[in-house]
Amino acid sequence: MMSANNEMHKVDHIRCSHVGEHCATSPGPAKIVVRDFHAGFGETQVLRNVSLDIYPCQRLAIIGPAGGGKTTFLRSLNRLNSLEHDFRHSGSILLDGQDIFASNVDVARIRRRVGMLYAVPIPLPLSIYENLTYGPRLAGIRDRHRLDELVETSLKSAILWDEVKDRLREPAHNLSGGQQQRMCLARVLALEPEVLLLDEPCSGLDPISTAKIEDALDELKSRYTVVLVTNNTKQAARASERTAFFLMGEMIECGPTAVIFTNPRHGRTSDYITGHFG
């Protein structure tokens, strides 16, 4: 399964050479294609008619005021919303052309390919080492050396290795908040995913930890498709290639970050970016 993932990466690298520029209308080979996606919980409609392409090896920032459906959209991409018993949706989300809501889909495998980092770090009640090997073990990797190697490389990618290499057996709860979030990033990377979903990953962190996370993400952008939900428009401007603006459950517009921030097509977008509301 993991070797299949590695092959996916190679394919991604090839695809990265001809990335499209425009949302929804672009003919380029998108990693994730969202079409006419509606979603809600029980009686509440959260997302309306979202159509969006997410291109490989690019960082897409999703901005917008609270309650706009950003997180719901993100949690749809790895089917985490399906855990809620009253979740309902229509429309489609295709990952490499495969409908992730199809009944014959292995959901656990989708979640390994589409890794997620939460706003609040969630260290599982295990040691640091066990946290990192949790996903790979479930994916069927048993070989000690392979696991050790995964732990080391993913901790290095998350810029945490030097701080924790001598205390891998300690409970993950002992780490500071910023370290915990980087450990959670490393834990996702240990799955060797293709897509990274980041749900306001720095909202609870101090500026130094935020900088470390952003540095780590910057290093990773060439290898992963990244979707970053953020309330921090500055972060969106500096840490993404494309930006989508969500408002009241609808996607108002989406385009290259430089265009969205300098010359948006919609008045609501520029109002939000310049801080007139939200």
Binding site: L80, L83, A108, R111, R112, Y118, V120, L138
Partner: peptide, 15 residues
């Protein structure tokens, strides 16, 4: 047990 543990574990591909 915080619901976050469940989400965190499931997002890592656990059943």
């Amino acid at each position: 047990v915080p619901k976050a543990y469940r989400d965190g574990s499931i997002a890592l591909g656990a059943t």
